[in-house]
Amino acid sequence: MTELSPFVILIAAIFTNNILLANFLGMCSFLAVSKKIETAAGLGAAVIFVTTATTAINYGIYHHVLTPLGLTYLTFIVFIAVIAAFVQFVEMFVERFSLGLYHALGIFLPLITVNCAILGASLFMIIRNYTFWQSVAFGFGGGVGWTLAIVLIAGLRQRMRYSDVPVPFRGVAIAMVITGVMAMAFMGFAGMVRIQ
């Protein structure tokens, strides 16, 4: 896969292989925090930053620590620990240097620790044997794709408040249905680029 340029991977991660709509990762916060566009965008921004940074860190740890020592079976647990610690660090950093952003993201930052899209991005980079820059592009693109999906569904859900949804479908049920429709719509990008 080394022949793909990071830019192609970036585009693919956003559209054709959208981590949420193609892989259905990060569903929990996607459904929980998609009622308002502003908060969805805030969470999305945090996810973009954290996926990009953690794929880079995890790339280093995987290729320079775990592989040489033959400990690749520790990948999952190590990645989870790194992500959790990194989110903590980001939270402290943002609180100190950008109080405005901290208050905007405040309660969403800890939520990211358990967002599987972030772990997913790190694991795909291993499975697909990306180089460092490909990994960073994939992490960034994955975050942007996830943000795009959550902002789109938040917009839809905001409007849906005024539509006449059948009672048994209200809430998460209809959100799942429209996520499915959105996923099908994103299949239209499939011919553009292809990564595994």
């Binding site: 740890i61 620590v65 400990l71 520790l74 190590v78 620990a81 610690a85 903590q88 660090f89 402290m92």
Partner: peptide
């Protein structure tokens, strides 16, 4: 593996406490 994982956790903890 115990050393590597333990070391990683200790490292992360130290980094976080310092931060």
């Amino acid at each position: 593996p115990i050393l590597v994982f333990g070391g990683l956790l200790v490292g992360l903890t130290i980094a976080l406490s310092l931060a």
